[in-house]
Write a protein that binds this DNA or RNA. Sequence first.
DNA 1: TTTCAATGCAAGTGACTACTTGCATCACAT
DNA 2: ATGTGATGCAAGTAGTCACTTGCATTGAAA
Lengths: 206, 206
Amino acid sequence: MTNPTRDQLLSAAARLYGEHGFRGTTTRRIAEEAQVNEVTIFRLFGSKSALLLEAIRTHGTDVSDDQLPLTPRDPLSELTAWSAHQRSTLRSMRSMIRKAMSEFEEHPDMPKCMENGANTVHTRLYRYFERMQELNLIDPKADVRAATAMLLSSLFHDAIARDMYPDLFPHPSSSAPAIYSRLALRSLGCNLPAAARETTRRRRAS
Amino acid sequence: MTNPTRDQLLSAAARLYGEHGFRGTTTRRIAEEAQVNEVTIFRLFGSKSALLLEAIRTHGTDVSDDQLPLTPRDPLSELTAWSAHQRSTLRSMRSMIRKAMSEFEEHPDMPKCMENGANTVHTRLYRYFERMQELNLIDPKADVRAATAMLLSSLFHDAIARDMYPDLFPHPSSSAPAIYSRLALRSLGCNLPAAARETTRRRRAS
DNA sequence: TTTCAATGCAAGTGACTACTTGCATCACAT
DNA sequence: ATGTGATGCAAGTAGTCACTTGCATTGAAA
């Protein structure tokens, strides 16, 4: 059952939360943004908190359509595409993520709303690397869990902090997912087919 | 010239900022924490903003004593020690960092206060890897800038987010700096002396 | 002792905030 | 036409907040 007023309020709240955080997202602001009367917020949600919590739940667990195949065939390009996609998603949500993290102590429910999304992404990548290990595409002794963490940390940090500290990240920005993916695979001792390896080398020469 | 009232206010403000952010750090709270009268804030600093800005400047650029040598001798252990130290520093500042990042749009000065610290750390690590490259300790073609970014992102993310999403990071926490360092060196194609490599393998078997 | 600077105390100002209340309007279903 | 639910409007409540003002106190220096 769709209710346009509810939806308007939820998306307005989510957007404003990303801009102003919990305290700075006032009920007056939300009402204006959603073009409804302020009292409607309390009629529909009971309180500002309840509205914001539901807004983050709705908009904060947007686990994007996953593109990592179950069976790795061309790891570098698969991983690059997936990384680019994840970074883009995180980037589009960066303000909200920053706010939720910031308010961990005062509103622990906020980052909590995003935990499922984060764990899902982590599990997907971890499985992919495990599968690669089973197929002997990487060093059997490689620390797959650590590489997973490292690649995700790079994507995450790039997504949420590049606009603040641009010099800390690889340039151009569009190449960063490929760069991180290559490094991650390399740290895993990835044995690429000779053809794929030749391609990689040529690209790096240019 | 030291002024105890000023110092008290600055450190109270910095601490409270880490807990409550800009808006949630009220002048009344600061005064109470510092055990001074609220009006003193305006006498000494003119406004809440000015106090908070100076507090973050004072407490937010704590670039810890650097332990990376100019000439790499034992990269894995040097890097591990350095990483552990950086992570510890970041961890101790994590609430403040989260707040400052969160408030980038509304108070861009806050993350700005930390930029020098971040760039300094980045430059140190980058130089270390470059030096390694000059000494032929790593692949001459390795992307040193990318590996720098990747290791720092891992340390950063671990420091500021482990308490929120513990399952995303390597365990035990105390081993994470070593794990990240190993991966980073590996991604750079680090040629460790045979003895050092043997040691590493034994440790992983246990 | 007097003076002066630093700080405390108390009251206040004007603006903001989440939320409530009572009445009115509108659109849809019966 | 009537009834009902959803929403708007307007006013209000009680509390919070950064900041100001006037007077008082304290400690150090001359």
